[in-house]
Amino acid sequence: MNAPVNASPITTAPLLEATGLVRRFGGVTAVGGIDLSVFEGELVSVIGPNGAGKTTAFNLISGLDKPDAGAIRFAGANIAGRSPEGIAAAGIARTFQHGRVFANLSIADNVLIGAHGRLRAVRPDWPIIGPLAELALALVRPASVRAEEATLRDEVSEILSLFGDRLLPRIDQPAHSLSYANRRRVEIARALAARPRLLLLDEPTAGMNPTETAEMLEIIASLKARGQTILLIEHKLDMVMRLSDRVIVLDDGRKIAEGKPQAVRTDPAVIEAYLGHGNIGAAAPAGNAATAAPTLPVTA
């Protein structure tokens, strides 16, 4: 039922495969049995009206919340119910819809936190005495530790340069001093620093103006071009249409459509869901949607 419609390496197993995910909050079924898969190198978008359960699905995949039912396999292993730390270590990094930068940390430190899981020299994974060794190494700071830190700092500049001069000139400023859009960028940079096998982006352009949105589209396109696997939640449909290999549409906790962007766009169930809710996100105001009958409106 959820055979990949448009995945080049059909022969291999998906990198991420969630089946029958369920999460209820009291009487509300936020996610009601969703199947979802992402193949290596793919960019899959999840769209749907507000409250459809997209963020909840992300929380389940990233381990911040535990599913009431269902399985999540990532790179062959079952990760459902694992701790967020464990899932991060397995190679999933995410951004948050409402932005969760570390407000009092500089941009550089925020991004370095993204690379926390990659620290090796200063975090030997010895049993039991590991934490104490980490403390000692942090205080003594032998050459290997200094070299690792320096390499990561170079990498931070490299990642930040992806955003032009939006972030680099402010690299030592605390995140709370940044504009909303810049905080969103810091989140993406932080996630990239983890070098994740799968990147989860929850509405990366929320609150951005058209210029900034276009910039973000280019950045995500460039990530995709270099082979980054991405699962994207996005309201701005033109962006979804241009970036996605595959689109999954959620409504009311259920998957109502899945397929290539063009196919999804003309799917009657999808149009019904969007028009029915009259609520489609910033890119397509309700008035606009009401006049566009056959396909979902996309501003090019």
Partner: peptide, 14 residues
């Protein structure tokens, strides 16, 4: 300091 500022985000990065 990351744990202090946002423990949920910190856990999400391992």
């Amino acid at each position: 300091r990351a744990v202090r500022d946002d423990d949920v985000a910190a856990r999400s990065f391992g």
